[in-house]
C-alpha cells in the first residue's frame, strides 16, 4: 500500500518535474523542477532494487549537474523569463519531439504489458531482506570492473580529457588577461 503510493509519488515527481522544467518561464524555477524530476528518477531506481544507482543519480545529477545548471542560470540575461517569446518553430519542434516520446513510451508500455511485465512496483513483496539489496551493488561493481572494464576506463579517460581541456582553456584566458594588464 505505502510502497505503491510512494511509487506513484515518484512517478508524479518525474512527470511534474519534467513538464514544469519544459514549460515554466523562470529559468531558476525550471532548473529546480528539473531537480525534482531527477530526484523522482532516483526513487524509481530504488523501486528497481538498485540503491547504488539511486545514490549515484543523486550525487551526479543533483549534487553535480543540477548545481552547475543553477550556477549557470545566474549568468542568464533573462533569468526571470520576462522577455521570452514563444517562437512558432520552437513550438513545432518541441511538440513534435514530445509526441514522438509519448508514442515511444506508449509502445514500450504496451509491449511490456503483453510480455507480462506490468506497471507493478517490483518491491511489493513484504519479506524484503536487506541482504537482497546487497546483491545489486556487488553485481554492478563486478560488471564495471569485469565485462565493462574498457568502456568504464574510456569514460574515465574522456572525463579526464575534458577536465584537462577546461584547465588549459582557463589558463589561456588567464595568460591573455595578464598580458593585457601588463
Amino acid at each position: 500500500m505505502i510502497e505503491s503510493l510512494l511509487f506513484w509519488l515518484c512517478c508524479a515527481m518525474v512527470l511534474v518535474g519534467a513538464l514544469g522544467a519544459a514549460l515554466v518561464r523562470n529559468v531558476f524555477h525550471a532548473a529546480l523542477l528539473l531537480g525534482l524530476c531527477l530526484l523522482g528518477v532516483a526513487g524509481l531506481y530504488l523501486f528497481l532494487e538498485q540503491p547504488w544507482l539511486a545514490c549515484v543519480q543523486v550525487i551526479v545529477y543533483i549534487g553535480g549537474v543540477l548545481v552547475l545548471i543553477l550556477f549557470a542560470t545566474l549568468f542568464s540575461a533573462d533569468a526571470m523569463g520576462t522577455e521570452q517569446r514563444r517562437r512558432v518553430t520552437t513550438l513545432v519542434i518541441g511538440s513534435g519531439a514530445g509526441a514522438l516520446a509519448l508514442v515511444l513510451a506508449w509502445r514500450m508500455a504496451t509491449v511490456g504489458m503483453q510480455n507480462g511485465v506490468g506497471l507493478q512496483p517490483t518491491r511489493s513483496e513484504p519479506g524484503m531482506v536487506p541482504d537482497a539489496m546487497a546483491g545489486s551493488t556487488n553485481t554492478v561493481g563486478d560488471l564495471l570492473v569485469g565485462d565493462w572494464f574498457v568502456p568504464f576506463l574510456a569514460a574515465g579517460l574522456l572525463l579526464t580529457v575534458a577536465l584537462v581541456g577546461a584547465v588549459i582553456t582557463v589558463q589561456r584566458f588567464r595568460v591573455r588577461a595578464e598580458a593585457e594588464r601588463a
Binding site: C55, G63, V67, M133
Partner: peptide
Amino acid sequence: TSVGALFAIAVSGIVVV
C-alpha cells in the same frame, strides 16, 4: 544498506541546492 557511505554523501549533497 550495502551503500551506506555513498547514501550519506549523496543525501547531504542536497544541502547545496
